[in-house]
């Protein structure tokens, strides 16, 4: 169980890092948009599920708040990505 939780935490942190690397490394805005919106969402999802398991195994408390955060993020991440892309298209048109 401990190994499984550690693996989930590590995968989550890795994806968070990859999202930010993509943010710095990729050459234009539309390509940069891909990194944070996807990698970071899955990274956070796995960190939060790790924390559910962590609190269950180590502290014997079941806390399910985390799922609320995960669901909320999975709903809002595409919406904010869409709006940012729209804003970028708009500012391009003006110039």
């Amino acid at each position: 169980m401990e190994i499984f939780i550690s693996l989930l935490i590590f995968i989550g942190a890795f994806f968070t890092l990859v999202g930010s690397i993509g943010l710095v490394k990729l050459p234009n805005f539309f390509m940069r948009l891909h990194g944070p919106t996807k990698a970071t969402t899955l990274g956070l999802g796995s960190i939060l599920s790790a924390s559910v398991l962590f609190f269950y195994t180590y502290l014997d408390t079941i806390s399910l708040d985390e799922f609320l955060i995960v669901v909320f993020l999975f709903i809002t991440a595409p919406v904010s990505a869409h709006l940012m892309a729209k804003a970028a298209l708009h500012s391009k048109k003006k110039v």
């Binding site: 991440a77 919406v79 990505a81 869409h82 729209k86 298209l89």
Partner: peptide, 13 residues
Amino acid sequence: STISLTPGTVSSD
């Protein structure tokens, strides 16, 4: 939303 969440694609407009 599904397109934004899946393989290397983001819906923009």
